[in-house]
Design a protein around this nucleic acid. Sequence first.
DNA 1: CTGAAAGCGCTAACAG
DNA 2: CTGTTAGCGCTTTCAG
Lengths: 350, 350
Amino acid sequence: MATVTIYDVAAKAGVSIKSVSRVLNNEPNVSPTLRTKVEEAAASLGYRRSLSARSLAGASSSLIAVLVDADLTIEHWKSGRGSDYLGRLEFGALMEARQVDYHLMIELVDHNSPDLERDLMALLNSIRPEGVILTPPNSDNIAVMDVLDAAGTPYARIGPEAAFDRGFCIEMDERRAALEMTRHLIDLGHTRIAFVTGPVAYGASRRRLAGYRDAMAEAGLEVAPAWVVEGDFTFNSGALAMEKLHQTAPDITAIFASNDDTALGVLQCAARLGLSAPGDVAVAGFDDSPGAGFSTPDLTTIRQPVAEMAAAAAQRLIPPLRRLLKGDANARVIVPHDLIERQSTAQSVR
Amino acid sequence: MATVTIYDVAAKAGVSIKSVSRVLNNEPNVSPTLRTKVEEAAASLGYRRSLSARSLAGASSSLIAVLVDADLTIEHWKSGRGSDYLGRLEFGALMEARQVDYHLMIELVDHNSPDLERDLMALLNSIRPEGVILTPPNSDNIAVMDVLDAAGTPYARIGPEAAFDRGFCIEMDERRAALEMTRHLIDLGHTRIAFVTGPVAYGASRRRLAGYRDAMAEAGLEVAPAWVVEGDFTFNSGALAMEKLHQTAPDITAIFASNDDTALGVLQCAARLGLSAPGDVAVAGFDDSPGAGFSTPDLTTIRQPVAEMAAAAAQRLIPPLRRLLKGDANARVIVPHDLIERQSTAQSVR
DNA sequence: CTGAAAGCGCTAACAG
DNA sequence: CTGTTAGCGCTTTCAG
């Protein structure tokens, strides 16, 4: 396992190490002959540049760091609310990164740790990533962005809520998606459509609610106050909302919940109340979380394009990829979503 | 953003860089005074060693690579069968790694690419990880293990199927878990219990089936041939199995499916056939995938301790952590699982 | 117990 | 177009 170094390649090709370096980095001023010689030597030796040497010598570290929130992850488990969000995110970023030999490093941060800034600074100091991908809730963490800006490290924020002038913002149009889903229900013949919100503190909740209202207004449908019930993105809150709606607005024919967990709760409670879905009440969710496809009935929902968002982030953070984007590398990107139609909204209203 | 180097710390502490290095690496022969001085200087400067410099100078790279299969991930999405497996795995490894300032790198590999060996070798050459975590199906990829062995890079295999003498094997006792689940059904009063298998090619499938048979035998219950139906870990195969069982073995009172997706399919088909669960038929799954907690009824299942397995892997791969393990660092680890009792097996047989 | 010197593999600046 | 010379920040010799 003798390590193959640039010297070995240079020796084999009969040139200087600088020439090898030039070829490897696609620098100008290299004769085709030399290029060929070097490439052949490198290939035959199975040579690969050492990341650390490169990084130490001042070139790119070829590293993208993904900052994942520890608290949120733990909370998700405890509440039994896991998702493949992270897996999809990483995959999307990785598919881009691997093309140009970049690597992905996953780091845990506590978004409300008092040492956050010190820790983050230390992290940057120690691994020197070329770019950082911020996942919620760190996508909106001012302290994190400040440290990153101070370090001069570019960052992409997945699903940011505000301050859209900082970093690269990679989003989906949640308001629009909620509008489309509501419109979908209206097209199915529903007119009395209830909405279960998420926690008011979340911008996503507010945007989804706004989209619902947009669609209703657009169709000239009034929204009775009783139709909008507060939830908190959990299964339980969905069940409670269903119960409440059953009492205060029994004449509704469709319920649009702010996320899938909530919608699943609605579904379960409806069954308990003897209401069939979609027969008595159509139900729609948001996120396309795992499980949405396996409920009875399976859930009509909006698929968040997580992998695509991560890919867009990677394209903006990795210089060789950004160059390919040319002028399209806007700082704010809206990635298209999908409406996935399943059984929970299957038939039109009787 | 002037980078803080070991020289800055040495200057501030009034010692040589070698002394700083000694303190940082917990080397012997350091006077307490010196140690304190250095530690204070380092802390006040917010100093953090550069990973690349350390790695280049021949010390540990402080890197653990996680090899994730690209094909499998893509396939999971297409089939709508996402899970939080990867998220849990990374979290478990990260919680250990961060304690000793190790980092996690995620790499995609195609387990059946023809260039697998070349690519992997190049990867090792370029990032020089201290250890590698192999996730299925690469946990059993001989070619991968050969490359790793040749490079002298330690590796931990999550959920290996065979060749238990290679690398660190981190497993759960699937046979035992299946036995316990079956026993649980028997304790509930069931005697006619069906089993839906996974794909025969998977060792996990075979072990789960064996556990089922163990428990039945142990209770002196015979297994009618019609009770064991072949599935393939998908939702659809569960629905098909339920249909088949309804025709060929209508008198069964419980169904144990090899994984949650399959169990969810069973559940849905049962509902379609007018069978209530758990009233007419109790249903149990395996994996505790997201969604298992949100079905109607929610699913009794076995929780795979993925995070714990990853933690065990990290402990064995990261030298400073392994030292803490002392003699307990066996090459083969069985991590305890949990049986999660939910509504789908709620009441005992009528 | 402590320090000075050498060099890991690479790129950057400066020559030719 | 190509090569030489210094380092990057650290750990490892090897001397005190």
